[in-house]
Amino acid sequence: MKVGVILKHIWENLFTEPMTKKFPKEPVQLPEGFRGRVGYIPENCIMCNMCVLNCPANAIEIKPEEDGKRWTLHYDRCLNCMICVEVCPVEALYNDDKEPFRVVTDRINAIETGKVPMVSCPICGKKVPRPSNTMVKRMMKEVTPRNLLKAAVCPQCKKDHKPEEIDAIIDKILEEGSYPDMDKLLGKEGLE
């Protein structure tokens, strides 16, 4: 009888542990493939605008600043769809499930931002964006000051000089230590 079934359930529930999650005391259990928030690694970013163009919520914007370019994620608009993570060519964005939810008192606090500084071309001194670690790794296997300097050569200088010449200039610069933006290039300064 139906009543019997219900009474049996009532009896069982009374003498078993409640099925409630002990949430604020215990951390959240996340399912496989959970899409958390978007994490940003400015060292890898090449400012290609792919994420800006593909974000369905127009949550990302890239704005030029005096000495670099600023990447901003308005997290209050984000849908956690991870399309930006998929389209980013250099793994500068990742799915950060360390923080599965966020509660803010102010929308200003919901902004993620990062800046990629401008560095000068080692040959002509023209300002170019700092080369991405991922790109350097893909092209030259290792991220070393030498490879970074090589990657920072501006397109015009690359056309004008032969590769051997560029190598020689960079060797000279490394010997003399005369490159002005070394800290920025190594990611010690300017990256946020």
């Binding site: 009532i10 529930n13 009374l14 078993t16 409640p18 099925m19 409630t20």
Partner: peptide, 9 residues
């Protein structure tokens, strides 16, 4: 009521 429903209450 909560215990019958399997909650902490």
């Amino acid at each position: 009521t909560a215990r019958i429903q399997g909650r902490v209450g």
